[in-house]
């Protein structure tokens, strides 16, 4: 554990809490892509099937929180606050993300076993899982500030992991190419959003895309 990884995990946790609180407090999931949230639930489920492999209390606890929170979010969007779900704007075709991620996981993995292929699939899937949400923001041309904070915290987490991987490579000689390449792709997808967040949201303006 190093500072980049810890802050990255906390940023990830913060993102999940912001989203749950936003939906709970406003009793609405307007502006939130249910499709991205389903993809995240798939990501955590397929990645944390290795839960019986005990690493640490921290590791186990975080995995359980991520899985539980992702299902709770999907439940709030598709069941409890279904009436507020903006499905007309959530039209990204997720099969174009799920199928290629799965095929790539079958082709490029560390070990051709069920658990390892599913872990690899989750890494590829996570790198693009936010696309339906970003697509929704670009389609409506705007995002509420709280949604922007959520996206910023979620995007920062993988960027911090990149620093963690550099640190681990230099100090422990440890690296995992699959996670590194996918993590870079994931972070790059947020770049456009990061720019808008820093130039607009942090200056108190609403995140609004140029017409």
């Amino acid at each position: 554990m190093n500072i980049f990884r810890l802050v990255g995990d906390l940023s990830h946790l913060l993102a999940i809490i912001i989203l749950l609180l936003k939906i709970w407090k406003t009793r609405s999931c307007a502006g939130i892509s249910g499709k991205s949230q389903i993809l995240f639930a798939i990501v955590y489920t397929s990645r944390y099937l290795d839960l019986p492999n005990f690493v640490s209390m921290y590791n186990t606890l975080m995995k359980i929180v991520f899985i539980a929170a992702s299902y709770a979010t999907v439940y709030l969007i598709y069941m409890k606050f279904k009436a507020t779900y903006d499905h007309n704007h959530d039209t990204f075709r997720v099969e174009f993300l799920v199928l290629p991620s799965f095929v790539l996981a079958l082709l490029i993995n560390h070990d051709f076993t069920v658990l390892e292929v599913l872990w690899t699939f989750s890494i590829y899937m996570e790198s693009v899982a936010i696309l339906p949400q970003l697509f929704m923001v670009s389609k409506t041309g705007e995002a509420e500030s709280i949604t922007s904070h959520y996206l910023f915290a979620l995007g920062s987490y993988r960027a911090l992991y990149i620093l963690n991987w550099i640190y681990r490579y230099t100090t422990e000689d440890h690296y995992d190419l699959i996670a590194i390449v996918a993590g870079i792709v994931q972070t790059v997808l947020y770049c456009d959003f990061f720019y808008l967040y820093i130039t607009k949201v942090l200056k108190g303006k609403k995140l609004q895309l140029p017409a």
Partner: peptide
């Protein structure tokens, strides 16, 4: 090296 036996990251 890349030890994929146990993924210690989240």
């Amino acid at each position: 090296s890349s030890d994929f036996d146990i993924h210690d990251e989240l």
